[in-house]
Computed example of a mutant assay.
Amino acid sequence: MLYIVGIGPGSRDLMTQEALAVIAKTDIIVGYSTYIRIIRDLIKDKEIVSTGMRGEVARCQKAIEIAQTGKDVAIVSSGDAGIYGMAGLALELASKAGAKIDIKVVPGVTASIGAAAALGAPLMNDFCHISLSDLMTPWEVITKRVDAAASADFVICLYNPRSKGRPNNLREALNIILKYKSADTVVGIGKDVARPKEIEKITTIKDLDEEDVDMTTIVIIGNKNTYVADGRMITPRGYTL
């Protein structure tokens, strides 16, 4: 059996009971070295297969190979394995290889959900996720998606918003968003969500300090009705009050 497990954003409290149970009963754990460190105390003396950044294909292939021997193996992703995680890649590779194995995807809490809870209730109406990383998706495609989401006034959750290699992607995305949304639109920032140095901040598009944002940050841009009350970011669902 191959388990594809979302371990949440970083805190044991935000791991699902199913994820904890699968990790406990599975003897072989495959994952990115950073994620392995997060769950190190859970895996103790289990066999570990770990690789560094950008080793996703190799990790998935190794997990599939192990599962084909009849052993139970879990490949772990931060957040939810099906949201920018390992689930899609593992399923694609298993299908293309014709692997005759059982596969189970175990959901987890993704960064936007964890950050939203810490910030208030910004995702109460329609929202979308957009990654600003152009490593696998052309920037032209990303900007079209940002434009469409902003024009439809979605609450927009920006993943991978800014890095040393892509310092201007967030600013370019915000410039597109400003074609449709006010500069006073409420923005929530969640950095290192559910980890020891977690930071939450509520600001606006015009006052957002891009230096606060990096690859461990989720940026949540409100819709035209999003507001701040008692230090919490709120997007109304539409109830008559």
Rank of each mutant, 00 (worst) to 15 (best):
I38Q: 04
I38H: 02
I43L: 11
E47W: 06
E47Y: 07
S50Y: 03
S50K: 06
T51N: 13
G52A: 08
G52D: 09
M53C: 08
R54S: 15
E56N: 05
A58G: 03
Q61C: 05
K62L: 06
K62F: 05
I66L: 14
Q68F: 13
D72Q: 12
D72P: 06
V73G: 13
V73Q: 15
I75H: 02
S78P: 06
G79W: 02
D80S: 01
I83G: 07
I83N: 08
Y84E: 03
G85P: 08
A87N: 03
L93T: 01
L93E: 05
A94F: 10
I101K: 02
I103E: 01
K104C: 13
G108Q: 13
T110H: 12
T110F: 12
A111R: 04
I113C: 09
A115H: 04
A117H: 11
A117V: 10
A117K: 07
A118F: 10
A118G: 05
A118D: 09
L119H: 00
A121G: 00
N125F: 11
N125R: 09
D126S: 14
F127W: 15
C128Q: 05
H129T: 11
I130S: 01
S131F: 11
D134K: 04
D134R: 02
M136N: 14
M136R: 14
M136E: 14
T137C: 15
P138H: 02
E140R: 08
T143W: 10
K144S: 05
R145E: 08
V146G: 02
A148I: 05
A148G: 04
A149M: 03
A150F: 09
S151Y: 07
A152Q: 13
D153L: 04
F154K: 00
V155Q: 01
I156E: 06
C157D: 09
L158Y: 06
L158H: 06
Y159C: 01
Y159P: 00
N160H: 15
N160T: 11
P161R: 00
S163G: 04
S163Q: 04
K164C: 01
G165C: 11
R166L: 08
N168H: 14
N169A: 09
N169R: 10
